[in-house]
Simulated scan of single mutants.
Amino acid sequence: MAMSYRDNDVKFGNKTSLTLIGGNFIIQDLKISPGQDPENKNVVKQKKKIDADGKMTFPVGRHGTDIVANWWKEHISAQHSTFNHDPSDLNFAFIGKLTLVLDLGDGELETYVFPDIALGQGHSSKSNNWWFGGKSRNHIGDNKVTCEGKSAEHKLLVTFRRGGNSVDEIEIVEVKVVG
């Protein structure tokens, strides 16, 4: 079977009173199933844009392997992902710095940085599903993890959900300013 690149979209959905304006994800480490990115379209230090609709795209082939799943397990423990268990196969996985630009409600924009965020894509039933977590994230049940983001002025505790929703959506379900 010949490899073909696919546009693998993941969307950050927002279920809070804040407005997601956009952001980016800078790849700091990655693992892709052998032969699924022969043109090296995904590399360390690359910045992936998150548009105003919350969508980000990774061009890469889709072939699940335990090679990528094992890489994920070496970097992200089960309790640090929304699923609270280890994957058996993944198509690809990335660890990086997530930056989100949020409107705090009065037109005031603030940029928050979340270090060591992990994104991966596996396969469940008839669809490709995304994995979300991070090196020091905390699983809190119901397919959710909490992550602390920092801006120049504030710390924000954000609860993300991936699971029990669209297979390509990571929902921002709660935000709390903590400092």
Rank of each mutant, 00 (worst) to 15 (best):
L156Q: 10
S136N: 13
L157T: 14
P59N: 04
V177I: 15
L156N: 05
K73Y: 09
G22K: 06
K31W: 02
G107P: 10
R162Q: 15
R137M: 15
I50S: 05
M56T: 07
Y5M: 02
E169N: 09
G134R: 07
G120A: 08
K15R: 10
D142R: 14
Y112S: 03
K97L: 12
S125W: 13
H154S: 13
K155D: 14
L90K: 02
H75C: 00
S4C: 02
S4L: 04
T82H: 04
D9H: 14
P115V: 06
G133Y: 09
W72L: 05
L156D: 07
T65G: 06
K126T: 13
G163R: 10
S88P: 01
T16L: 11
E39C: 07
H154Y: 11
D116P: 04
L156F: 06
V60S: 08
N143P: 03
F83L: 12
E153K: 15
I140H: 05
L104K: 11
A152R: 07
K150C: 08
V101M: 00
S4R: 07
P59K: 04
T146W: 03
I95G: 02
D7H: 01
G133L: 10
N143W: 14
F58M: 10
H63M: 10
D9K: 11
V44R: 12
V178W: 03
P38T: 10
W71H: 04
F94M: 07
P34Y: 02
G120C: 03
M1S: 13
G107F: 08
L109M: 09
E169T: 14
A69R: 06
G35D: 06
G22L: 06
N14A: 09
M56A: 10
L157I: 15
V178D: 02
S4H: 01
T57A: 02
H63Q: 11
L100F: 05
M56D: 02
V10K: 00
T57P: 01
L102Y: 03
L104E: 09
M1Q: 07
W131V: 11
N70L: 05
P115I: 12
K73A: 12
E39F: 14
A52S: 15
N128S: 11
T111P: 00
W131F: 11
T19Y: 08
L98H: 03
E110P: 03
F132R: 03
G54F: 03
R62K: 05
S124I: 09
G105E: 10
D89I: 08
G61P: 00
I32T: 05
G133A: 12
E74P: 03
E110N: 05
H85V: 14
D142E: 13
E39R: 10
I140A: 11
G22V: 06
T111I: 04
F92E: 01
K144G: 00
K49F: 09
D37S: 01
V43D: 00
S127T: 13
A152T: 07
E171M: 10
R6K: 00
L109N: 04
A78T: 04
G163P: 14
E148Y: 09
E39K: 08
P87R: 04
G96D: 03
F92A: 02
Y112D: 06
V145Q: 03
N14M: 09
K73H: 08
M3K: 11
S127H: 11
D66P: 05
V43K: 00
